[in-house]
Design a protein around this nucleic acid. Structure first.
Lengths: 204, 204
DNA sequence: ACCTGAACACCGTTCAAGT
DNA sequence: ACCTGAACACCGTTCAAGT
């Protein structure tokens, strides 16, 4: 064989990423492997290691794509309401819905840890910042008097709660027992946190 | 070989669980395997499948032990203060500290998902309930007027936030950038949530 | 230059065969 | 009855060899 230039390096990367996502959706995190990705794009495993340093790097790109998707899913719901508090609740529910509908990709995004002490690349951190910026905006509308650092802190606190509820809830670690809906828990959490934040700042 | 009754079924299970925890602490989640556990206790891999249905079952017991440890770590700090709000903050920081000091075990506890649609066993759910009960107590002191269901809901909301902050913070997905300490974020979150909860209930 | 194929050192899981 | 050893079907990763 040894085919030559059927696809560019960039094309191969993109094909591998798409294939990995498809496998993830169909067979879950446990069903994903470098060999299956290679087979799915019609190349040998070795070729994958010509365009990616290793499997972890491929997964990093998969997670980057998931983060982009997740942001789109959240922002899509951002402007259906005018009340900032309503917007934040809708965004939180969109986050939950994305996690439910793309559980394998969501799971990989938060369970995948880069090996050793390899730091998260700056371009990936930028994507995280971008998601937080989307949450920050309605929060700023709600509290225009806050400085940037206080606003960022509140965004992180609020989203930690939303994320934690999704993480624990979807892995059955909240013992909800079917009686309570996770949606209600998240909506109530957002309300309570926003109340508390206002009050602790003396605004109420 | 075919040694006979060197250890009982229960002893073998306990040895395997302890060995798995030791491997986890030394080599992380990626370094754990059934073969290594077997080797470490001086038996063949096959023996492991005589006392456990599969690796997932062994990991479930490992996670049960971690949950017990985690609860001890939290409850230990529960009575150093008399103010319930202070107690809750101390418990949250103990949760973070446990996650930091036992990152592999903590990671496995929340990333391990049972295969297929196999439900979490009742005895494991009971352990989760038990952890939540520890958090519920100081919250009840703070709001004795709440009924059981409202109290439980508040407990879940509060702890979702603490868990989410630990999960995102420890995997570098909060973009803290070293400026902010995760401890401060968590303390501030608990304060804000408690304020909000009180206010939304009209107590303040 | 690009890609393969085979190799290496691992996996989880099963089960006939040994004592 | 208890345990082994080998087998099966997989892994991630590397790299000499082919075109």
């Amino acid at each position: 064989m040894a085919r030559r230039s059927d696809h560019s390096r960039e094309q191969l990367q993109q094909m591998a990423i798409s294939a990995a996502i498809a496998i993830l959706n169909e067979h879950g995190v446990a069903g994903l492997s470098a060999r299956k990705v290679a087979k799915s794009i019609g190349y040998t495993v070795g070729t994958l290691y010509l365009v990616f340093k290793n499997l972890d790097e491929l997964l990093l790109y998969v997670n980057a794509a998931t983060l982009d998707d997740l942001q789109r899913a959240i922002m899509q719901e951002a402007n259906v309401h005018t009340d900032p508090a309503q917007i934040l609740k809708t965004m939180a529910l969109a986050y939950l819905r994305y996690a439910q509908q793309h559980s394998a990709r969501w799971s990989l995004l938060f369970s995948h840890r880069l090996p050793a002490n390899q730091p998260i690349p700056a371009w990936f951190e930028q994507k995280i910042t971008s998601v937080f910026d989307g949450v920050k905006m309605p929060l700023q509308q709600l509290h225009p008097e806050l400085n940037e650092s206080a606003l960022l802190q509140a965004t992180r606190e609020l989203w930690s709660g939303v994320h934690g509820a999704c993480d624990l809830g979807l892995s059955d670690k909240l013992n909800l027992g079917g009686r309570f809906k996770l949606e209600e828990l998240i909506e109530s959490f957002v309300e309570n946190y926003l109340f508390g934040f206002a009050k602790s700042k003396g605004i109420a």
